[in-house]
Simulated assay, not measured.
Amino acid sequence: MDTIIWIVVAVAVLWGFAPITLGRGGRVSTTQLATLCAAVGLPLPDASTGPILARIAHRERWSLWGGAIGLALGALTAIVGRLEPGGAVIMLGVAFGGAVGGGLATVVAGHRVPAGAPRVARSRRTAVGDYVPVRHLIAARGMLAVAIVAGGVELILGATRTASDVPALLIVCVVVALPVAVLTEVVLRLVADRPQHASTSLELAWDDVLRADAAHQLVLNQVIVCALAAFAAPFSAGLFDGIGPSPVPPSGATVVVAVVVLAAAAVAVGLVTTGPWRRHPLDRLWAGRSFDPPGDDSSATRPIGASDAGRAPC
């Protein structure tokens, strides 16, 4: 019964992955769109609305499909593996599936510049660091290291309650954290390396912002998955056995591991969720440029430096 309730909750969360278009290009939430424009600080003139909304709808549609697949896999894992708590597995499946779907939407971009239309391209190759702040990468990779070390320490100490708890928590959680981290790194590089197609400088800047948003969701979900995986170590080792009618105090090493994990998780989540991360690609790739709100015909954004962006074949 609990699993069914969590599936219903996950479905409700799933629709939050497409707040602007609901994965369709027909109806648009003007409130959500205005919030996004204010957050990134870019104008959205009528001439550019169509192409940019098409990109947003494409990404949100892939996020929905990715989240739905993650929900199905999470529910199947929770039911077949009889994992407790199953709700956490389902919600992680939805969140990470949606993040991967949003990232892959960039890789299989459906937008193409019409034949004969002007094309704008960047004169240098972009890298992951252009879309993801360094502190975010440090937080994600650091949290993975904490998960691996925490799991290894508890296994070495032999502090687990019973042998059956090891595959249910440490192996399932810690071993899942590594593939999640690897998949995140792969998709991040695909997002950064994918060629960009745009007919105006403003459209190219919006593409950068949407890529950064997809990359941020991937990094944030890796931090959360690795944090839960790290906390699985002291949980498996009997940290909570001290609660109940027959308390069994956990070992001192287990308590230390739990405190370190909680501190590391708090720092990592704080690093990833603070700061104007949506404007990071603009600061990196569009420093010194201003966009003319009434419209952008590629002459409205003139390079202050000679090597940043300009007209070139895509």
Rank of each mutant, 00 (worst) to 15 (best):
V8A: 15
V11M: 13
A18C: 00
G23C: 01
V28H: 01
T30P: 00
Q32E: 09
L33Q: 07
L36W: 14
C37V: 03
A38P: 02
L44T: 05
A47H: 01
S63I: 03
I69W: 11
G70Q: 09
L71A: 04
I79R: 13
L83N: 09
A88M: 12
I90W: 06
M91Y: 01
L92Y: 02
G93V: 06
A95R: 04
G98R: 05
A99Q: 05
H111R: 10
A115P: 00
A117S: 13
A121T: 07
T126C: 10
T126S: 15
A127G: 04
V128Y: 10
G129N: 06
Y131P: 02
V132C: 07
P133H: 11
V134A: 15
H136I: 00
H136R: 06
I138E: 09
A140N: 08
A145F: 06
I148E: 08
V149S: 10
G152Y: 03
L155N: 07
L155D: 04
I156T: 10
G158W: 05
G158V: 01
T162W: 11
D165Q: 15
L169R: 09
V172A: 15
V174S: 05
V174N: 11
V180C: 15
V182F: 09
E185M: 07
V187R: 07
A192E: 06
D193R: 15
P195L: 03
A198D: 02
L202V: 04
L202I: 01
D208M: 05
A214L: 03
A215Q: 10
V219F: 09
I224N: 11
I224G: 04
C226F: 04
C226V: 02
A232P: 07
A232L: 06
A233L: 11
A233G: 07
F240L: 12
P245F: 07
V248R: 14
P249F: 07
V255I: 15
V257C: 08
V257Y: 08
A258G: 10
L262F: 12
A268S: 14
A268P: 05
R278G: 07
L282K: 12
D283H: 13
L285Q: 13
W286V: 00
A287T: 08
P293T: 04
G295D: 11
D296I: 02
S299W: 12
I304A: 15
G310V: 03
R311E: 13
P313Y: 05
C314H: 13
